[in-house]
Amino acid sequence: MPSVYANSVHAMRMCDAFARAGHRVSLYTAPGSFAVEDPHAYYGVRHRFRIRTVSSPDYTPAGYRVRAERVRRLLVRDAPDLIYGHDLYALTVGVGIAPLVYETHRMRDDPNTLRIEHDLLHADVLARIVVITGALEHEYRRVYGASARLPIVVAPEGADPPDGCGGAAGRPELPGRPDARRIGYVGHLYEGRGIDLVLDLARRLPDLDFHLVGGTPEDLAHWTRPRHHVANAYFHGHRPPATVGAYYPLFDVVLAPYQARVYTADGHCETGRWASPMKMFEYMAHGRALVASDLPVLREVLDDRVNCLLRPPTDAAAWAQAITELLADEPLRTALGERARRQVLHRHTWRHRVDRVLAHLDVPSTSAGESVRRPSPP
């Protein structure tokens, strides 16, 4: 952190929500791929918390272990009441310092982390495991349930209301035709994100302008090659997380065209079966009319013709029909967006998520001055 990837946004949003709940937070992170003057401003978080950057010699298992030992020395020096994290190496060295909460967004598939995870899940050291979907909880129980202690909490990703994202981003100037309706996609451009589908839709609907916000320089270079060119599709590239919220109000309809197989940034791990896309919740928080892929895992949050329109992820004609219907039916467009917005406000803010993952854990709060037990959200 910082980086262009969603996991760094997730970490900063969670730390912000922990701080908002009254806790004193220290984030231990590997160095980012670039530098920013003020990480809190770059990510648009409302609360300031301590960020400790911990380097490692390299990005090998041995290097990860070196960084983890450095984290342990810092934790021993300033022992927390709870250690919450994704990094298995750092969590393992935290054993004996404080209770551990392990959050995971996928099943592990490489030998080193599989071994560490196996040992962690079979030791009596975890306060709980946090997963992002019921599908992932089911998979963990299927793989480990007969042998491991699995106190699992399901907590989907979240979003902040538009006025709670921190910072005041100016209105972006979008290229394209001033009288054309705007269709938006926000997120990464790598395999499984449905960028081919978005470009197909742009060809099918030439009277509309399609705007794609996000993507690494490498992925952007791939999709802007002449062979992918579509005149009414505009790629905006990566934007600081604090400024992304300013794009959503500019779009008449937004797209979540996730495919059945979605891969991590390096293309190594397939995560589509368990995904809880952060950008989907941001679309909803901004009250945008959403067309999304009809995938079982997304139906844990989305409901066709209630808070979105769902379409098969490979049926471009069906997606074109859904976009056309929404643009022609303003009451439907408004109703879907408003129901989605209310759902996030009542169930899926980052603060809701923090209350869920800390429910029934004794964690001192600086605002309360003593240990508090937070009830489970409804």
Rank of each mutant, 00 (worst) to 15 (best):
R141D: 12
P175C: 07
G145A: 06
D124C: 01
E139V: 02
D124H: 07
A146G: 14
L120E: 11
V153Y: 12
A127N: 05
V153D: 15
E139W: 02
A146E: 13
R149F: 02
P175T: 05
A148C: 05
P151N: 13
A123C: 06
P162C: 08
E157P: 02
T133C: 01
G167K: 07
E117I: 00
I152Y: 09
A168Q: 14
R115T: 07
P172I: 01
A148Y: 03
G134V: 00
R177K: 08
Y144N: 03
G170A: 15
G134H: 14
R141L: 03
P156M: 10
R142H: 14
L126R: 10
L126G: 07
A148V: 00
G158H: 08
E117R: 10
A127P: 02
E139K: 10
L136A: 04
P162M: 06
P162G: 10
C165E: 13
Y144F: 13
I129V: 15
R141E: 13
L114F: 04
C165I: 14
G158W: 10
G145E: 09
L136Y: 05
H138Y: 04
L150K: 09
D163P: 00
I116R: 14
V154A: 12
L136R: 06
R177E: 09
G176M: 10
L114Q: 14
G145P: 01
R149W: 02
V153K: 15
A168W: 08
V125F: 02
I132T: 14
D163G: 05
R115P: 00
G158Y: 12
V125Y: 04
H118C: 00
V143Y: 09
G164H: 12
E137T: 01
A159V: 02
G170W: 05
V131S: 13
I132R: 06
E173V: 07
D160L: 05
H118E: 14
V154S: 12
P172H: 10
I116A: 00
G176V: 03
H122C: 11
A159L: 04
A146L: 04
L136V: 00
P151D: 14
G176L: 09
P151L: 05
R177M: 03
R177Q: 07
Y144K: 05
H138F: 03
R141I: 00
L150S: 07
A159F: 12
V130H: 13
L114C: 10
I132M: 11
R149V: 04
G176H: 09
V154I: 04
E157K: 07
L114D: 10
G176W: 09
P156Y: 09
G166C: 06
A168T: 14
C165A: 07
P156F: 09
T133G: 01
A159D: 15
E173P: 00
Y140T: 03
A159I: 01
A159N: 15
L114P: 04
P161D: 12
A127Y: 07
R142L: 10
V154E: 12
L120S: 11
G158C: 14
V130F: 11
L136K: 08
A169R: 07
A155F: 05
L120R: 12
R141F: 04
D163Y: 02
